[in-house]
């Protein structure tokens, strides 16, 4: 096991210690791990599998069912465009299309250099300033294609 893996196992065990060995804790545990690592490492899944006595396939099934969980680390900048109806009606699809085009990525992908990952989200509840997109949880309201371009330019420069 590499030292990265060891670290993951150790951190995972710490999280598991806070939970009883009951199957219904699976999703709260996965939520914690997702927050901790930004994704759900395979090693963590194995630890959970042993701890809760749930087969790996079932855990994998749960992870791939819920869009909040990801199997790969997200990019340094995770840009998500709200495609809730309120934002959609105000043109967020064009913003997302532009984002895909500029970064040459598809929904849910991370760029090869690990810098950007993009996805769509459902309503973030900022309908008052629709359309919105977020960069690592920072909300950009009243968004336009132009505004997106400016933000991307800035992020690309920042490295």
């Amino acid at each position: 096991m590499s030292c990265v893996d060891e670290k993951i196992v150790e951190e995972t065990r710490k999280i598991l210690d806070g939970y009883k060995k009951e199957k219904d804790n699976l999703i709260p545990i996965l939520n914690d791990i997702q927050v901790k690592f930004g994704y759900i490492p395979k090693k963590s899944q194995m630890e959970i599998s042993k701890y809760l006595g749930i087969p790996m396939a079932e855990i994998f099934g749960v992870i791939t069912f819920y869009s909040r969980f990801s199997l790969e680390p997200k990019g340094k900048y995770n840009i998500s465009v709200c495609l809730g109806t309120a934002c959609f009606v105000k043109g967020s699809q064009a913003i997302f299309d532009r984002l895909k085009e500029r970064l040459k990525l598809e929904d849910g992908q991370t760029s090869a250099d690990g810098k950007f990952s993009i996805d769509t989200t459902r309503c973030v509840g900022a309908c008052g300033i629709a359309p919105v997109f977020t960069v690592n949880n920072e909300v950009y309201g009243h968004a336009t294609v132009k505004k997106l371009d400016e933000v991307l330019d800035k992020l690309e420069k920042e490295g």
């Binding site: 999703i27 709260p28 069912f65 819920y66 869009s67 909040r68 459902r122």
Partner: peptide, 8 residues
């Protein structure tokens, strides 16, 4: 509290 994890 139980958290949903992104499934409509």
């Amino acid at each position: 509290i139980r958290l949903g994890a992104g499934a409509f």
